[in-house]
Simulated scan of single mutants.
Amino acid sequence: MATNSTNRIYPLQLTNDEWRTKLTAEEYHVLREAGTERPFTGEYTDDHTEGVYNCRACGVELFRSTEKFDSHCGWPSFFAPAAEGKVEYIEDVSLGMKRVEVRCANCGSHLGHVFEGEGYATPTDQRYCINSISIRREPLAG
């Protein structure tokens, strides 16, 4: 699932200064510097409102409420992205462990990590552990 490529050219390219203008300091830290918000502090952690979750940096749809579930891990959890190709996977060996980072495939922003085989009763046996600050929920169209 993971790749080692971190030098990919994304469809949306902005300079660091442009990103800093567009995002708050906290958003920039998580989305552009692969930071993490503190557990149980994000606005979508326990949210059950129907909607689509877009990348906070570029607005592309990434996840849907129909794939969101309660994992009680401290961050919003999804068992699948909204569609194939919406996110990209990067091998992450920081912090002395092997994980799979999840990024927006449109702008390269850090979203969180995906974990497999944790025993959650989901159709994919995956948990996309996503920072609330990386996404913005919008109402379902229609």
Rank of each mutant, 00 (worst) to 15 (best):
R127F: 00
R8V: 15
S77H: 06
Y53G: 00
H110Y: 03
Y53H: 05
T36I: 06
E118M: 09
A34E: 08
M1C: 07
E116A: 14
G74N: 07
V114E: 00
F63Q: 01
F79K: 00
N106S: 15
H110K: 07
K68H: 08
L14S: 10
N4A: 09
G85W: 06
T41G: 09
E43I: 14
E50W: 05
S132M: 08
Y53T: 04
E50K: 15
F63L: 05
C73Y: 00
G42L: 09
E84I: 09
L12F: 11
I9C: 10
F63S: 01
V60Q: 15
G112W: 00
C107H: 02
M97T: 12
G112L: 01
I90F: 03
S65K: 05
L12R: 13
R38G: 01
M97E: 02
P39H: 08
W19I: 06
E18M: 10
L62H: 02
C129V: 05
E116P: 05
T24H: 10
C104N: 02
E101C: 03
T24Y: 10
A34L: 04
G51M: 09
P11A: 10
E61C: 09
D92T: 06
Y10W: 13
V87Q: 00
D70S: 12
D70T: 12
T122G: 11
F69G: 11
W19K: 08
E91R: 14
R99C: 01
Q126E: 15
K68W: 04
T3Q: 12
A82F: 02
C107E: 02
Y10N: 06
F69I: 11
G142W: 02
C58V: 09
C73L: 10
E88W: 01
E33L: 14
H72N: 14
R8F: 12
V114C: 00
